[in-house]
């Protein structure tokens, strides 16, 4: 009993640690509350329908976010259309078809590494590979090869330059590892008895994947896809490298249009010294957070409603 390991001292330690736990856990809640309140406090007054539907302006009272909002929609749509098939396809191959060879091991390690690459480095890759195309088509913008009418929807230019398409593809690089990893987890959660059953009934491997495994894994895949899209909406560093801070006065009309995106517009306004710009930055953040909450809400809904226990 003389030792410090008496029951009383151990119970005391237990109590103290519980208090530390409660404090630490509440830090996250308090920070979230302070963050949201401060942003609403700063941005609520300048938030209006006119703010959402007008273009950029040098006067903070007249500035709006229509161009960056539409730019974000275009870029994220392209990003999703490329990243989701590519990512899901990669995951299906790795989980359902590939044998455990040295090659698949390298691919797997490589994907984990890609997930850890800072997003700004993807920006550099996007700038070189998509915007400039390694200089294959020359470095002067006027020398670019064009196809179609610049005003119409079907217009293509090589190299892509700082266009919506280059932006979407760059964001695709950023979220691709996230899509792959979350899809792999969703596929792994499908019990192997379902696959064995299908194969035993004579289905081919692909029929098993398409008819049995994928439908069972679709809630998990969709949750992962939505969460990675919400990452894409908020990502700004790679696109800053790609195109800088453009002051754009129209919404994109084709894949080669210049674009602004919402997070970069926020960065632009937040970086200015005047309080008026901070206020509209906060208003833009409110819009951005609303979009994100919508996405997260859908993800939670899918997880709660569609996910049926498979065991």
């Amino acid at each position: 009993m003389a030792k410090s390991r008496s029951i009383a001292s151990r119970v005391l330690k237990d109590r103290t640690f519980l208090w530390a736990c409660l404090i630490a856990t509440n830090v996250a809640i308090v920070v979230l509350a302070v963050l949201l309140m401060s942003i609403f406090w700063q941005g609520w007054d300048t938030l209006s329908w006119k703010f959402v539907t007008s273009f950029a302006s040098r006067k903070p009272s007249e500035a709006g976010i229509l161009a960056p909002l539409m730019g974000s929609v275009w870029v994220c749509t392209i990003c999703g259309l490329v990243a989701l098939p590519l990512g899901v396809g990669t995951a299906i191959y790795l989980e359902e078809f590939a044998k455990r060879t040295w090659f698949t091991k390298i691919v797997q390690t490589n994907i984990m590494n890609l997930a850890g690459v800072p997003s700004i480095v993807y920006g550099i890759l996007g700038l070189t590979a998509f915007a400039r195309m390694f200089g294959v088509f020359g470095t002067n913008v006027d020398d670019a090869i064009t196809l179609g009418n610049e005003e119409g929807f079907f217009f293509l230019r090589l190299p892509f330059g700082s266009s919506v398409l280059a932006g979407g593809l760059t964001l695709m690089l950023v979220i691709l590892p996230v899509v792959i990893i979350s899809t792999q987890e969703a596929l792994r959660a499908v019990p192997s008895s379902l696959r064995s059953g299908a194969l035993a009934l004579g289905a081919t491997p692909w029929q098993t994947v398409w008819g049995i495994t994928l439908p069972a894994a679709i809630p998990g895949i969709m949750t992962g896809a939505i969460l990675s899209m919400s990452r894409a909406i908020g990502e700004s560093a790679p696109l800053l490298v790609l195109g800088g801070l453009l002051l754009v006065f129209n919404t994109p009309t084709n894949l080669m249009s210049d674009f602004a995106i919402l997070p970069l517009q926020i960065y632009n306004w937040a970086g200015r010294p005047q309080d008026e710009f901070h206020a509209i930055a906060a208003s833009a953040i409110i819009i951005q957070l609303c979009v994100l909450l919508l996405f997260n809400g859908i993800a939670v809904f899918i997880r709660q409603k569609l996910q049926k226990p498979l065991q």
């Binding site: 996250a28 920070v31 979230l32 963050l35 401060s38 942003i39 700063q42 969460l227 919400s230 990452r231 909406i233 908020g234 990502e235 700004s236 560093a237 997070p263 970069l264 926020i266 960065y267 937040a270 901070h278 930055a281 906060a282 953040i285 951005q288 957070l289 994100l292 996405f295 997260n296």
Partner: peptide, 15 residues
């Protein structure tokens, strides 16, 4: 918290 864009955290740090 995990979904909030980093530019928002930057704004929070600054203001």
């Amino acid at each position: 918290l995990a979904g909030i864009p980093t530019v928002v955290y930057g704004f929070f740090a600054l203001t």
